[in-house]
Simulated assay, not measured.
Amino acid sequence: MRNIVILISGSGSNMAAIVRAAEQGRWDQRLNARVAAVLSNRADAQGLAFARDHGIATQVLDHKTFASREAFDAALMTEIDRYTPDLVVLAGFMRILTPGFVAHYAGRLLNIHPSLLPAFAGLNTHQRAIDAGCRFAGATVHQVTAELDHGAILAQAVVPVLPHDTAKSLAARVLTQEHLIYPQAVAEYLAQSPMRSNRG
């Protein structure tokens, strides 16, 4: 069985979409894969309750208790690797990852970003799209590299920017598309990826 570990910091709505897709799509039978664990850097992340309710192991690792970003990422890697993951999925995990962490999971680390990359990497993507006069916005699923919001694009969804959109209204429409394309991209990644015999 191939294990997926999902990292969250808040509501975990993309995580929940992936879990539901895995259940409804019978990933355990069709893809020999399961969501094995959900980890968070915040004990109050609402998504942890959803994961527990679905029988998924959860764990909290508070980044504020570590002296450095490197120390936190090293501890996080140790916890993730307990599940020998074939795939690590960032789903609203609000941490910039160190190069060592990214290198450790190279080729099996995915993220979703609320813009049509390479446009609007970083934060405040919806307001920036509105301010720039964009007629379209969207979301991108991509492999993670050491460079923020770069890496091979796996899926994108396009959402029109409406004349009276605010950052909040645009974000809400983009999020509905995120919930569709992220599970699809994860499933396609698993379908195209052979079982890993060496996971370290």
Rank of each mutant, 00 (worst) to 15 (best):
R2H: 06
R2C: 08
I4S: 03
I4C: 06
S9L: 05
S11R: 14
G12R: 01
G12K: 05
I18C: 11
V19H: 04
R20Q: 09
A21M: 01
A21K: 01
A21Y: 03
A22T: 05
Q24K: 14
R26Q: 14
W27F: 06
W27M: 02
D28W: 05
D28H: 14
Q29A: 15
L31N: 04
A33C: 09
A36N: 03
A36D: 03
N41F: 12
A43Y: 03
A43Q: 15
D44E: 15
A49T: 15
A51L: 10
A51H: 11
A51P: 14
A51I: 09
F66E: 11
F66K: 09
A67G: 13
R69S: 07
R69T: 05
E70W: 03
E70S: 15
A71L: 13
A71I: 11
F72P: 13
L76P: 11
M77L: 10
D81T: 09
D81K: 12
P85Q: 04
D86P: 02
D86C: 00
V89W: 03
V89N: 06
L90A: 09
G92F: 04
F93E: 04
M94D: 04
M94P: 07
R95Y: 07
P99C: 08
G100E: 15
A103G: 12
A106N: 10
G107T: 11
G107H: 08
L110I: 14
I112A: 09
I112V: 14
I112S: 08
P114F: 01
S115Q: 08
L117E: 07
A119Y: 00
G122C: 02
N124H: 15
T125V: 14
I130W: 05
R135G: 09
G138C: 14
T140G: 11
V141C: 14
V141N: 11
V141K: 10
H142E: 10
Q143W: 08
V144R: 10
A146P: 09
L148T: 04
L148V: 13
H150G: 05
H150A: 11
A152R: 15
I153C: 12
I153Y: 12
L154N: 11
A157E: 10
A157Y: 09
A157N: 11
V159E: 04
P160H: 11
H164K: 12
A167P: 00
A167Y: 03
A167Q: 11
K168F: 01
S169A: 02
S169N: 03
L170Q: 02
A172I: 00
R173F: 09
R173S: 03
R173N: 01
V174M: 03
T176K: 05
L180S: 00
L180V: 14
L180G: 00
L180W: 00
Y182I: 02
A185Q: 01
A185G: 05
A185Y: 04
E188L: 06
Y189M: 06
L190Y: 02
A191Q: 15
Q192G: 05
P194V: 00
S197H: 12
N198Y: 10
R199Q: 11
R199C: 11
G200D: 15
G200M: 10
